[in-house]
Simulated assay, not measured.
Amino acid sequence: MNSIQRILHRPFFIKLFNWEYWSFASVYFCIYPVWVLLCLRARSFFFFAASNPTIKNGGFLCESKKDIIPIIPAQHHPPTVFFSIPTNGSIVVRELQRAGLQYPLIGKPNIGARGRGIKVLRNEQEVLAYCHTAYLDFHIQEFVSWKCEAGIFYVRNPNQASGAITGIVYKEFLSVTGDGKHSMLQLLQKDKRALMYLCSLKKIHGDRLNQVLPAGEKQIVSPFGNHARGSRFTDASHLADEALTRVIDDICKQIPGFYFGRLDIRFESWEALKAGRNFSIIEVNGAGSEPTHIYDPRHSLFFAWKEIIRHWVLLYRISRINHKKGHRYLSFREGIAMFREANIFAKKLNAMTE
């Protein structure tokens, strides 16, 4: 690696030349006027609350997974147990045993965002540790073993019988492949994507990163399908054929009052998913969902802006239709309170992630 390559390999320059790593505000700043225009046309800065009437705030911010999970068809969601803080770790362990959940498990804040506060729990000790550091109500669910994960964006006009898939992102978990010579840490330091999340990986794995993997052995170092946790996002929207659309549409119509949002799904294979088998919905996101296929490194920032605006317009149209049907927008006071509450949650989530 020459001197120029070494310079470009530094996190600052990786971030500078790859917009997918930019902050939320940096990406959205130039298109905020479009959002303001939609608000003015709706005569409400918080019109999105009507998009998904059965979800708090339409699923834009501060929505509770404890309220959302019960409306997802039970056969398509992993077993889950909810807990409120403060809680006793021993009681949590007993409740998990009573519910028949098997390790490994996943701990998630009840109100979360961008993968913060999510942890893999491999044994009783890790469950106890998670309870000790939980600053928000949380839930624990069984880890879904299917190796594939995708985010499928779904939209349905409330006046129409069927909806459509408007984007698919395939998620590749951050991993490292051994060469029999270098440690996982050394190999991760050579990878530009891994380098952006190295501090987090060191906190998660500690000395385990000094392990030398046999040549060809692949180790997933971040098993979370979140861009903020290192996953590579690939645009797979071309896979939205008639079969897949029919499966997703059938599921979403079973979720009361759900018209706009993204399903995060783990599945065995695309063939199985299109046949409606061997998959599990691990999360349903509402009005605050991003069309995350925009984060495919092949896409330009201009493509991202186009897709974001396209989905904003769809959100506006759905919200307007539902509003005419009697579903209310948030008042200005309620909207400001929502953002203040979200700011409090964000600080606690950051504390749980550190």
Score class of each variant (00 low, 15 high):
Gln186Thr: 02
Glu341Pro: 05
Leu273Ile: 10
Leu213Ser: 09
Trp35Gly: 11
Glu341Lys: 12
Tyr21Ile: 11
Ala272Glu: 05
Ile68His: 00
Trp19Ser: 07
Tyr197Pro: 00
Ile55Leu: 03
Trp305Phe: 11
Ala50Glu: 05
Leu8Asn: 02
Ala272Trp: 03
Arg333Trp: 10
Asn285Met: 01
Tyr316Thr: 08
Ile204Ser: 04
Val247Ile: 14
Gln102Pro: 04
Glu354Thr: 12
Gly151Phe: 00
Leu40Gly: 09
Val36Arg: 13
Ala129Leu: 13
Ser289Asn: 09
Leu185Cys: 11
Val247Thr: 01
Ala150Lys: 00
Gly180Val: 04
Leu38Glu: 02
Thr87Met: 09
Glu126His: 11
Gly163Ser: 02
Val81Tyr: 01
Ile309Val: 13
Val81Gly: 06
Gly100Asp: 03
Leu195His: 05
Leu209Gln: 02
His293Ser: 06
Met352Thr: 05
Val155Gln: 10
Phe45Tyr: 09
Tyr28Gly: 00
Gly261Tyr: 04
Trp270His: 12
Gly216Cys: 09
Ala304Ile: 08
His311Tyr: 14
Lys306Ala: 11
Ser319Arg: 01
Pro104Gly: 10
Gly107Tyr: 05
Arg41Leu: 15
Val169Leu: 04
Trp35Asp: 09
Asp296Phe: 07
Arg6Leu: 13
Asp179Asn: 12
Gln211Leu: 08
Val155Thr: 12
Ala164Gly: 03
Val81Cys: 09
Phe332Lys: 11
Phe224Trp: 10
Pro86Val: 09
Arg43Asn: 15
Leu198Met: 13
Val155Ile: 14
Ile165Val: 15
Gln141Ser: 12
Leu263Thr: 06
His311Gln: 14
Glu354Ser: 12
Ser175Ile: 03
Trp19Ile: 09
Ile248Ser: 06
Ala275Gly: 07
Leu349Arg: 02
Ile344Asp: 13
Arg328Cys: 10
Gly180Asn: 03
Ala50Leu: 08
Gln211Arg: 07
Ala337Arg: 06
Phe332Thr: 14
Lys348Phe: 02
Cys131Asp: 03
Gln254Pro: 03
Ile71Ser: 02
Arg116Ile: 00
Asn343Met: 03
Thr87Lys: 05
Thr245Trp: 01
Glu290Cys: 14
Ile309Thr: 06
Cys199Asn: 13
Thr80Gln: 03
Arg122Asp: 13
Val247Trp: 06
Arg122Asn: 15
Phe258Tyr: 15
Ser269Gln: 10
Lys171Ala: 07
Thr80Cys: 14
Ala25Tyr: 04
Ile7Ser: 01
Phe13Asn: 08
Lys171Tyr: 12
Val247His: 00
Leu314Trp: 05
His238Trp: 08
Ser64Pro: 04
Pro86Phe: 04
Phe60Pro: 00
Gln75Leu: 09
Pro79Thr: 05
Asn278Tyr: 11
His9Met: 12
Ser51Tyr: 01
Asp296Tyr: 05
Val34His: 08
Thr177Met: 07
Ile220Val: 14
Thr133Ile: 10
Arg156Ile: 08
Thr133Arg: 11
Phe143His: 11
Asp250Tyr: 11
Phe332Cys: 14
His323Met: 09
Ile4Val: 15
Ile255Gly: 07
Ser331Pro: 01
Ile31His: 06
Val34Gln: 09
Glu95Ala: 15
Phe24Asp: 14
Val144Ser: 06
Val144Lys: 01
Ile118Ser: 01
Val81Ala: 09
Val313Gly: 00
Gly112Ser: 15
